[in-house]
Design a protein around this nucleic acid. Sequence first.
DNA 1: GCAAAAGTGTTGCTTTTACACCCATGC
DNA 2: GCATGGGTGTAAAAGCAACACTTTTGC
Lengths: 245, 245
Amino acid sequence: MKFEKIPNISVDCVVFGYDTITKSLNVLVMKRYLESETGSEVLVDDYVLTGYHVYENETLDDSATRVLKELTGLTNQYKKQFKAFGDPDRLTNEKDLPWIKNEGFNLRTITIAYYFLLKTEEVDLKNSAHQKKWFPVKDLPELGFDHRHIILEAYEDLKIKCLAEPVIFELLPDKFTINEVQDLYQSILGIEFDNRNFRRKLINKKYIIAIDEKQVGVSKKPSQLYMFSKDIYKKIFQKNYLISI
Amino acid sequence: MKFEKIPNISVDCVVFGYDTITKSLNVLVMKRYLESETGSEVLVDDYVLTGYHVYENETLDDSATRVLKELTGLTNQYKKQFKAFGDPDRLTNEKDLPWIKNEGFNLRTITIAYYFLLKTEEVDLKNSAHQKKWFPVKDLPELGFDHRHIILEAYEDLKIKCLAEPVIFELLPDKFTINEVQDLYQSILGIEFDNRNFRRKLINKKYIIAIDEKQVGVSKKPSQLYMFSKDIYKKIFQKNYLISI
DNA sequence: GCAAAAGTGTTGCTTTTACACCCATGC
DNA sequence: GCATGGGTGTAAAAGCAACACTTTTGC
């Protein structure tokens, strides 16, 4: 009983990884491939989110953490439960049926969807069992089930979240330049900011700390590195009750 | 199969109702009462949210809508799925056990929680099967299961939501005064605004429309009535990309 | 005429926006 | 010395915050 899977409840994890080099916000997905018994026909060939059934004795948060760990080896990443998906037909697209038959899924499975924020470079894709791949959130491959929909809803939630809370720093290395932060905001939100205004705004925050270090190995003026202090942020944080409707 | 309940998945509805007269943001809950077989002992005597199992052929949203309709007779109210609750021990407080035994619940039930926004006066509590009652969100009664927790999370979500979207008008009658809007914001957020600044801000919105009508039957200067035009709001709405971290 | 709540303006301050050029480095 | 992105200042406009008294009605 204790470690049994609940057959009709899963968690699905949208893993967002930012690649500072290519300036791309990516999503980690897993290859799904199935041939007919004779091997003459490819039945399923696309990607899916990583997810798994929730265990009987496990909280939803713990399930999501477990799935992320199995997928990436990482723990302690920023995690948010953002929505449950449970349409009766969410798993029953024609192209999903052979897969479901093969895997023995329950056709009416509700999934609790989480998203995680981390850095692409933190994940080692080589030494891993499944075939996993990063795709830019703006250029997703063909996805199984309702997973494109889930990713896009996660992305919408992230857009709103990053305007109100300093989650952006979860996607950046510990030491970053102001322009990297700006690039990331722009990449997530799809809009451009004035560099001088953006820079001023960030540098004025007490929790954005200039460190005594500069970029190395770049063939241009090396830029100042900063870090984000969560401690200071928490200390000086105060709810802003500005009504903007 | 089609109309069977899924035994381990439910929706729970936090129904927020605002009472313009008493200026109280209320939550609608249902009496839960159980005596021992001999009638000599009260086993359970408290309140719970209304909720119900999800049916096999039904979306989560439809389940929530159905539960609200059975509870209040109302449809087409503002509805938001805000979180799934699924801790293994969420139904197993000692005081919930006799109830669960009596009702034949699945002990590991995940609930998808929704909140609704409406006006207290819209709901007729008299002609209704179950014993239902409004309680101020700031003065909740003893609640079964994890329902206090669910209500408080719904309330937190509502606080954030009403700062960014005009959901406040879902809680007010069609015709309202500026001071009623201010009272409601203050009641939800627990802070006070300057009346002159608040009034100016609202009246300047194109979608807040002064109508050719005043309050009647009040023994004071009757106030100007306004309405909210969702159409105009949608037309002129534009996402505000202000980073406030 | 009095109680009750509605409604009204101004000023200083902070924040946002718009905008163009020089700087430091590696090659 | 040149290519590359890093870094800088100012002025106008908008929005926000603080503040106290007069008006209109029903009774």
